[in-house]
Simulated assay, not measured.
Amino acid sequence: MVNVCQTVVPDMLQRNYGDVIIYGSTAGMIVTAKFGAYGATKCANNFYTKVLIEENKKSKIRILLVCPPAVDMPLLKQAEATDQPDIFNNSFFNSYLTSSPEDVVKAVEKSIKNGKKVCYPRSAKISSFLNRFM
């Protein structure tokens, strides 16, 4: 992600036009057992993107950080198969704390259209808010 940004952002700045969309995660904000490596990489994505946004706020390029909750994809299915699947077999988790890939794409499109800097699909905004108090 850093290498791609270091490659494309200078050209976008020179053109004074372009969109950068980086996927972080609420997993980079909320400590979750068994998600150490994944959470650390997403935390790095979140932080790097926020710095990139700040450093380029006077330019015309648009940079968007996407922080979805758990997304119903193969990685989530793999996590469900771990030795501690209870969190994933919870109806609250499945109803409110997961998102479909389609929901995420719709939220990204809406965020770009509305000029947002950070996109929190579905319940992710609540997670972001609650994280401030943890």
Rank of each mutant, 00 (worst) to 15 (best):
K57E: 14
K50W: 02
R62A: 12
L97E: 06
I53K: 03
V4T: 15
V20N: 03
L76F: 11
F35W: 06
P74E: 00
G36A: 13
M29H: 08
A81V: 00
K77D: 14
M134H: 08
V31I: 08
E102C: 07
F129V: 11
I126G: 08
I126M: 12
N3G: 14
S59I: 07
Y48F: 15
D103E: 15
F93A: 04
I53V: 12
N45F: 04
L75R: 02
N89I: 01
K58C: 14
C5S: 13
I53G: 11
A37W: 02
S100Q: 07
N3H: 12
K125Y: 10
I63R: 00
A27R: 00
V51W: 03
T82Y: 01
S59F: 09
A81N: 09
P121F: 00
D86T: 05
A33W: 03
G24I: 00
Q14I: 11
K125W: 09
N131V: 02
K77E: 14
K113M: 06
N16F: 05
I53T: 08
N16Q: 14
L65M: 04
A107L: 01
D72G: 04
Y48G: 06
V4M: 13
C43Y: 07
V66A: 03
N114A: 11
D86P: 02
M134Y: 08
E109Q: 12
Y17C: 14
K34G: 13
V4G: 11
G18F: 07
V71G: 07
K60D: 15
T41M: 03
K113C: 09
I112M: 12
K106N: 13
R15V: 09
N45Y: 02
D72Q: 13
V9H: 03
K125F: 12
E102H: 08
S111M: 00
Y38H: 04
N3M: 10
C5A: 13
K50P: 09
S127H: 10
Y48Q: 05
S59W: 08
P10V: 09
R15E: 15
T41R: 00
K34M: 12
A124L: 02
